[in-house]
């Protein structure tokens, strides 16, 4: 805009929002991470966090997030690729996205029925001659449900970068004698890496911080960083420890953002 129209007035509510809801919350979490239960300054929370119990929990949380991200990517990449090859690709894309508009809680709730002892999966297993097993409240069901939920969010950025890919590069590679796999590995995948990175970003960070699905589906078998924060804040009422884990999660987030570029998140989970 021109210098003449420059005015500071419009930015005032926005600036207030930024101070109150962006800067203050980060500062408060950081401040609380140094407080003990009696609101006195302490480093005990951090000492606690680097003790074996919390370290194991953190590593498990990372491990689950990595598995979830891996499988989501493995399923989503071919889907995104095939979508770009369809005739009415934007229509198909919308159809892929619609399930992501459905409230997360409802999708999770559906799996309580589907994976239950008398649910359709067990009915299928039984007709195949297996004994019905309780799949709920296992880490398998947790990974399954989370992968299901993240698939559309992973497809979206990958579809975007695949769609922008210049097809003639692919044809050129094939003409020059590259096999299908070589073309994928050395042309298609490197050129769509930005979409993959955004996809990993929108999957990995939420996978670390989920707490609702762990409670409903994994029945406390899986403890993520998110579950730990929720527990400290709302159950144990130890805001200091909860804040310490939150500070750690923020740091991890910043590292992942730096490692995968700065594209933005596609959804919240």
């Amino acid at each position: 805009m021109s210098a003449k129209s420059r005015s500071r007035a419009p930015i005032v509510p926005y600036a207030v929002w930024m101070v109150l809801f962006v800067i203050a919350p980060i500062a408060l979490v950081l401040y609380y991470s140094f407080l003990d239960l009696d609101r006195h300054f302490t480093l005990a929370n951090y000492r606690n966090f680097f003790s074996s119990a919390y370290l194991t929990m953190t590593l498990t949380s990372f491990w689950y997030a990595a598995i979830i991200t891996f499988f989501t990517l493995l399923i989503s990449y071919p889907t995104a690729y095939l979508l770009t090859r369809t005739k009415h690709k934007n229509l198909w894309l919308i159809l892929i996205i619609i399930p992501s508009w459905i409230n997360l809680l409802l999708k999770t709730y559906a799996f309580i029925g589907i994976l239950g002892l008398h649910g359709p999966i067990n009915a299928l297993l039984e007709t195949l001659g297996f004994d019905p097993t309780q799949m709920l409240f296992t880490d398998f069901s947790f990974i399954l449900v989370v992968v299901y939920i993240f698939i559309p969010f992973m497809i979206l950025p990958i579809f975007g970068s695949l769609d922008k890919l210049d097809r003639s590069l692919v044809y050129a590679a094939r003409d020059l004698g590259a096999s299908g796999w070589d073309t994928f590995r050395r042309v298609i995948f490197p050129l769509t890496i930005s979409g993959v990175k955004s996809g990993i970003q929108v999957t990995f960070i939420p996978a670390l911080s989920l707490f609702m699905i762990t409670r409903l589906i994994a029945g406390n078998k899986v403890i993520t960083l998110g579950t730990a924060i929720e527990e400290q804040f709302l159950v144990a009422d130890n805001w200091g420890m909860g804040s310490t884990i939150a500070v750690f999660l923020i740091l991890v987030m910043v590292l992942i953002m730096m490692a995968t570029g700065t594209s933005r998140k596609g959804g919240r989970a």
Binding site: V29, S209, L249
Partner: peptide
């Protein structure tokens, strides 16, 4: 980009 649980807690 912040995880929801961190936003909620803060």
């Amino acid at each position: 980009v912040s995880p929801d649980v961190v936003i909620g807690a803060s």
